[in-house]
Design a protein around this nucleic acid. Structure first.
Length: 219
DNA sequence: CGACGGATTAGCT
DNA sequence: GCTAATCCGTCGT
């Protein structure tokens, strides 16, 4: 044992999440990502967001996934190695961001649906002036992508590389008692799969109706 | 080559 | 609560 990668308070750089933690299973990866931080360099400054809501997507066996019908130029990142940004354009006006999962050659990704701004709050509000509350800054996948400045040029970025403009900072695994799960949003097919995960009690979780079917805890 | 619909959000009623 | 706004990837003819 040579060097100790301990998160030395304010001194050492925050450790990045290891690619292997995302390579085994999309559901495990989704839960692992909760509580971790996405840090992005924007023209206005660096913005760091703590993930509180995500959704898992798989490949040919997942009708709701972009990769359900095989590999295309658009979804290629989903088929590559874990730990890369898959950014896509939707509804003619928004971008959404995923982090690729599973081994190279196997399609998988986790959609980043919501987060809480850790820093810099002033920069974040400058980037999204319409947000009245701080909890709204990255509430919803398109708002999160907008806040972090994601566009086509970010597609494929390796978030496990400290030199990337977008980095995924590891946090201790979140307390399982705080994790909730339910059906994915806007997904008619596979509605019985509770592949949406969020942190209980976060104000930044996109609006949810608890009365609906929320099969909690089943993977 | 044309049509369709989507992992959404803002703004109005 | 409901709908308009608005582009591109995918599929059918």
């Amino acid at each position: 044992m040579s060097t100790e990668p301990r998160p030395a308070g304010e001194d050492g750089p925050a450790p990045l999440l290891d690619r292997d933690e995302l390579a085994g299973d999309v559901l495990v990866a989704a839960v692992r990502l909760l509580g971790c931080t996405v840090e992005a360099d924007t023209p206005e400054g660096t913005v760091a967001v703590r993930l509180v809501e995500v959704e898992a997507y798989r490949g040919a066996d997942d009708p709701a996934s972009h990769s359900f019908r095989g590999r295309t130029a658009r979804n290629g990142v989903m088929f590559g190695p874990a730990g890369h940004l898959y950014v896509y354009f939707v509804y003619g006006m928004h971008f959404c961001a995923n982090i690729s999962c599973l081994e190279d050659g196997e399609a998988g990704a986790v959609l980043l649906r919501a987060g809480e701004v850790e820093s810099d709050l002033a920069v974040a509000h400058a980037r999204r002036p319409t947000a009245r509350r701080s909890a709204d800054l990255a509430r919803g996948p398109a708002r999160l992508a907008s806040l972090l400045g994601f566009g086509r040029e970010h597609n494929g970025v390796d978030v496990t590389d400290p030199g990337s403009p977008v980095r995924l900072l590891a946090a201790p695994p979140i307390d399982p008692a705080l994790v909730r799960s339910g059906p994915r949003v806007g997904v008619a097919a596979a509605h019985d799969l509770p592949w949406r995960f969020w942190v209980a009690g976060s104000a930044a979780v996109s609006q949810y109706r608890p009365g609906r079917n929320a099969p909690v805890g089943r993977l």
